[in-house]
Design a protein around this nucleic acid. Structure first.
Lengths: 179, 179
DNA sequence: CTCATAATCATCGTCTCCGAGGTATATATC
DNA sequence: GATATATACCTCGGAGACGATGATTATGAG
């Protein structure tokens, strides 16, 4: 459906709070994910157009002194519903891919039912606690100690440490949401 | 140049060790990054073709009892050089994007000069130690304490913890490489 | 014996991404 | 007065990602 869609999620997420024009949107998206992968005009504006075409947002031209007239973008009711839908039933990559997952976290508060929020966190927790390895020798998963080179060792060290931290946070937050 | 290129890096990386046929390659790539984003045949085989077209690998059909005859893929000298080049001078996303960076770590040992390896680690270290924030209020970077919602707080908590772990590992490993 | 799954490779169409290029004004700097 | 930078939007073309679909044979389960 939306094979990449991280930018679309960001747009919907930022506009859910308040109407913005494209240029301001670009700055916010750049702050959120730009350090990982910079956002290009050629990516943002077509994405806005897609969302408009699909009836998820409307644009109001604002007369003004600017070179190109600002277009204030506002989510429609369908757009607001679509954001909640994408947050409540994310495609797998939004759970497994860290960049997409972080974008989910940035906007998950817009899903105002704690039960739905908890459902999403539980999916992430299930993914992180599932046994996995980066390398295999036949059926045997290889572990840090199986490697001589410090880089593959580091890969395991970092992956394990970061997932442990996040698992802790997920358990705490799930407990808080249940209460 | 190679705008996404993570799959190409994996292919070059795995073949650097030993010739493999496509199906086996698919399993290894799937183990390395498939949990994050599954690898589709429609992605892998065209990527192999590109690399062949560019003279980076050669394929030898193996007669056998299989349905479709295996093609054993071997890196050419140009392919081996190209892997080392991509490892030594990675495009920015290979430093900043965690998925690509992990792929770098998986194969960085193939860059056999410690000075070059250290250069790459230093770029990652510079990226991680650079001050950054996900959200801003005008010019002021917002921090975990500025948010009420637990998800954005979690975003900061997790990002900070994981980057601290990795910074530690980078410093240690850089010290070891220097010695 | 049948049915499913693993093994093995391939293509096609659709969508998204992204860099490059384009236009125009206001403001700040030199 | 000139030059750069920020503001503000847009398009086009090339390339990659990916799901769908397809084909054949061996093996294992029921």
């Amino acid at each position: 459906m939306y094979p990449n869609g991280m930018i679309e999620l960001s747009i919907l997420g930022f506009l859910y709070d308040e109407p913005l024009h494209g240029y301001e949107l670009r700055k916010r998206v750049a702050a959120l994910t730009g350090h990982v992968r910079p956002i290009a005009d050629g990516t943002l504006y077509p994405a806005i157009k897609r969302l408009e075409r699909d009836g998820l947002l409307e644009r109001d031209p604002q007369p003004g002194a600017q070179a190109a007239p600002k277009h204030v973008l506002t989510l429609t009711a369908a757009g607001r519903a679509e954001l909640r839908r994408r947050l409540a039933e994310p495609d797998e990559p939004f759970i497994t891919d860290e960049n997409r997952w972080f974008t989910m976290l940035a906007f998950l508060r817009h899903l105002d039912e704690p039960a739905l929020q908890a459902g999403v966190l539980r999916r992430r927790l299930a993914f992180l606690t599932e046994p996995a390895s980066f390398f295999w020798d036949g059926d045997r998963p290889l572990r840090a100690a199986d490697f001589d080179d410090p880089f593959r060792k580091g890969l395991f060290t970092i992956a394990t440490a970061t997932s442990r931290t996040e698992i802790g946070w997920l358990r705490e937050t799930l407990a808080a949401l249940g209460a």
